Simulated scan of single mutants.
Amino acid sequence: MTKTIAFYGSSLLSAYWNGAATYYRGMIRALAKRGYRTTFYEPDVYDRQKNRDIDPPAWAEVVVYDGTVDALRKVAAEAARHDIVVKASGVGFEDDLILQEVMAAARPDALKVFWDVDAPATLAEMRDSPDHALRRMLPSLDLVLTYGGGDPVVAAYQGFGARECVPVYNALDPDTHHPVPPDPRFACDLAFLGNRLPDREARVHEFFLQPAASLPDRSFLLGGNGWPGSNLPPNVRAIGHVPTADHNALNCTPRMVLNVARDSMASNGFSPATRVFEAAGAGACLVTDAWEGIELFLQPDEEVLVARDGQDVAELVRTVTPQRAERIGQAALKRVLAHHTYDQRAAQADALFQAQARREAAE
């Protein structure tokens, strides 16, 4: 029997200022293959609807609502129609109210899930605010899923009263992220794609801009919102927002691509960003800043290059040949296709949902 999911998140249709888009799309599409039918509710905020990069998909229904409290309450009431009710973190519009309204509307027999796409930030908020809405409601929710974080994140959530917390990590959708021919627009020695955010900017300076400044004879490409107008080295070309449709070409063309974790993700570890799997799925040679747990996803020196600091990045740009870069990229592609696809993550989520349903039926 088809299970229906009411999913309240930031946006399925637009990746504009919305780093979770790839994760949402991969998970929901893969769950559809397993018989789940999802209705995704997203607010019309932050100009995301003006910057859609996919059409409404066949594998989910999308409901876009006005950024008003009245519209929020109307779509929250629709949670009562569904078997599983999911509130994601980081919607960006009245997050606490959405959580309260949708869980109040959910049927008593519905599975109630909080799906955290930024666990370090959420946990920090709960530590700082004893009256935090999620902190109050955790004991009444059936399940917390996170797209990153290892044992410390699980233990922290359980310490706040979560019944169960399980990481369901980012992954690859090989239908959307895969090797394509190189595109001259993205030719360079090292590329970084990521929005300019306060808790990542210092690390981007250390791992990307400083190496660029030290290697004036090499070329660097910077994609993402917020960077143009910065004081960039002359050999860094900033190209602004890169639509999802261009991600494969951006990953396939440079000699190497860089991943830089946000401060909180790096300190918690076990938090591979979507760009890690996007790059690996395109067969790119990925350089990542060091964080605990990377070897669970890609093997250092064989499937990924790990840099401890900007000097390491500069040394890799100087020394890694195109031939070695290609070998590493191909090894990464093989690894993620074998072990890290959204079909595999959806199987994990499906098993969790079914286990919860069996427990409730037995009570």
Score class of each variant (00 low, 15 high):
residue 244 T to P: 12
residue 264 S to V: 03
residue 209 L to G: 03
residue 296 L to M: 06
residue 255 R to L: 15
residue 223 G to H: 03
residue 211 P to G: 01
residue 247 H to K: 08
residue 273 A to W: 00
residue 253 T to M: 10
residue 218 R to V: 04
residue 246 D to A: 10
residue 281 G to S: 13
residue 210 Q to W: 05
residue 269 G to D: 02
residue 235 N to D: 06
residue 273 A to E: 05
residue 210 Q to N: 08
residue 237 R to P: 05
residue 219 S to K: 12
residue 271 S to T: 10
residue 261 A to F: 11
residue 291 W to M: 10
residue 296 L to V: 01
residue 206 E to Q: 14
residue 296 L to R: 12
residue 232 L to P: 15
residue 261 A to K: 01
residue 284 A to M: 00
residue 279 A to E: 00
residue 270 F to R: 04
residue 287 V to E: 01
residue 292 E to M: 05
residue 236 V to F: 12
residue 232 L to V: 12
residue 278 E to I: 10
residue 265 M to D: 08
residue 250 L to M: 09
residue 295 E to F: 05
residue 285 C to R: 00
residue 299 Q to L: 14
residue 249 A to S: 12
residue 231 N to W: 07
residue 229 G to Y: 08
residue 199 D to M: 08
residue 215 L to K: 04
residue 252 C to I: 13
residue 235 N to M: 14
residue 253 T to Q: 08
residue 229 G to D: 06
residue 235 N to S: 13
residue 282 A to C: 15
residue 201 E to L: 07
residue 231 N to G: 08
residue 291 W to V: 02
residue 265 M to S: 07
residue 257 V to Q: 07
residue 270 F to N: 11
residue 226 G to H: 10
residue 229 G to C: 09
residue 244 T to G: 10
residue 290 A to K: 08
residue 232 L to H: 06
residue 202 A to V: 10
residue 266 A to G: 01
residue 247 H to F: 14
residue 231 N to V: 14
residue 282 A to N: 14
residue 292 E to Q: 11
residue 249 A to P: 13
residue 298 L to F: 06
residue 233 P to I: 15
residue 247 H to I: 14
residue 212 A to H: 12
residue 219 S to T: 13
residue 211 P to M: 03
residue 204 V to S: 02
residue 281 G to Q: 05
residue 222 L to F: 10
residue 256 M to Q: 12
residue 239 I to Q: 04
residue 264 S to F: 03
residue 289 D to Y: 00
residue 235 N to T: 00
residue 259 N to G: 01
residue 299 Q to C: 13
residue 293 G to V: 06
residue 216 P to V: 03
residue 296 L to H: 09
residue 231 N to C: 13
residue 268 N to D: 06
residue 248 N to A: 11
residue 288 T to H: 09
residue 241 H to W: 15
residue 234 P to S: 11
residue 287 V to Y: 00
residue 293 G to C: 08
residue 287 V to H: 01
residue 265 M to G: 04
residue 207 F to A: 02
residue 239 I to V: 15
residue 269 G to R: 00
residue 254 P to Y: 09
residue 239 I to K: 05
residue 280 A to L: 10
residue 228 P to N: 04
residue 207 F to N: 02
residue 287 V to A: 06
residue 263 D to I: 03
residue 209 L to T: 02
residue 218 R to F: 06
residue 288 T to D: 02
residue 292 E to G: 02
residue 283 G to C: 07
residue 228 P to C: 08
residue 260 V to N: 11
residue 219 S to W: 03
residue 258 L to V: 13
residue 245 A to W: 03
residue 292 E to N: 06
residue 246 D to V: 01
residue 263 D to R: 14
residue 295 E to K: 05
residue 206 E to A: 13
residue 201 E to I: 04
residue 222 L to P: 10
residue 242 V to I: 11
residue 249 A to Q: 07
residue 280 A to M: 08
residue 252 C to F: 13
residue 260 V to F: 09
residue 286 L to G: 02
residue 236 V to G: 07
residue 271 S to N: 06
residue 240 G to S: 04
residue 230 S to T: 12
residue 213 A to H: 07
residue 224 G to S: 03
residue 289 D to G: 02
residue 268 N to W: 07
residue 285 C to V: 09
residue 256 M to H: 07
residue 212 A to F: 05
residue 264 S to C: 09
residue 223 G to L: 13
residue 208 F to C: 01
residue 230 S to D: 14
residue 280 A to P: 03
residue 253 T to R: 02
residue 215 L to I: 04
residue 257 V to D: 11
residue 259 N to S: 05
residue 229 G to A: 05
residue 263 D to W: 15
